[in-house]
């Protein structure tokens, strides 16, 4: 049986279907580390953490910020169910910076109750900033 040469990547959030495309390579931010996926991958189901997702079509690479979800990998397709997913060019850097400041302040104040939430908020904002910077350097 010939291995598939392309992956059908689908990224859906509760609000919409963000990506529906044939791609050559995907990297997912798994909860326990990044996962690189090429066509013909063994079926895999993974929880995703907060992180950067990229996919490559021919020579072009696209970046997205993802927060908490699931990825289902089949030999010829990848389905990502994410609570939040944003393309690099859609990210509002100003907002992300502001969110980062707020989260850092809260972490420094050390209020126990909110520390987990602040940490997650910080991670999300950092990832957004990182992903957004990819979009800028590419242009």
């Amino acid at each position: 049986m010939a291995l598939p040469t392309k992956l059908l990547l689908e990224i859906v959030t509760p609000d919409r279907s963000l990506v529906h495309e044939e791609v050559d390579e995907v990297q997912l931010p798994g909860a326990e580390g990044y996962l690189g996926v090429l066509p013909g991958h063994t079926p895999l189901l993974a929880t995703l953490g907060v992180g950067e997702l990229w996919y490559r079509v021919e020579q072009e690479t696209h970046y997205l910020a993802i927060a908490s979800g699931f990825g289902e990998v089949l030999p010829d397709s990848v389905t990502v169910l994410a609570q939040i997913a944003e393309r690099a060019q859609d990210i509002d850097v100003g907002r992300a910076e502001a969110a980062r400041k707020r989260a850092e302040e809260r972490l420094n104040k050390n209020v126990d109750a909110d520390i987990d939430r602040a940490r997650i908020a910080l991670m999300k904002s950092l990832i957004r900033i990182q992903v957004a910077s990819r979009a800028r350097t590419k242009v």
């Binding site: 798994g30 996962l35 063994t42 895999l44 189901l45 993974a46």
Partner: peptide, 19 residues
């Protein structure tokens, strides 16, 4: 048939149901 799970299926399940 042959999924790999990361983390364990039970863990994923626990995460998936509330969602």
């Amino acid at each position: 048939s042959d999924y790999l799970y990361e983390p364990e299926p039970e863990e994923i399940f626990k995460d998936l149901l509330p969602r």
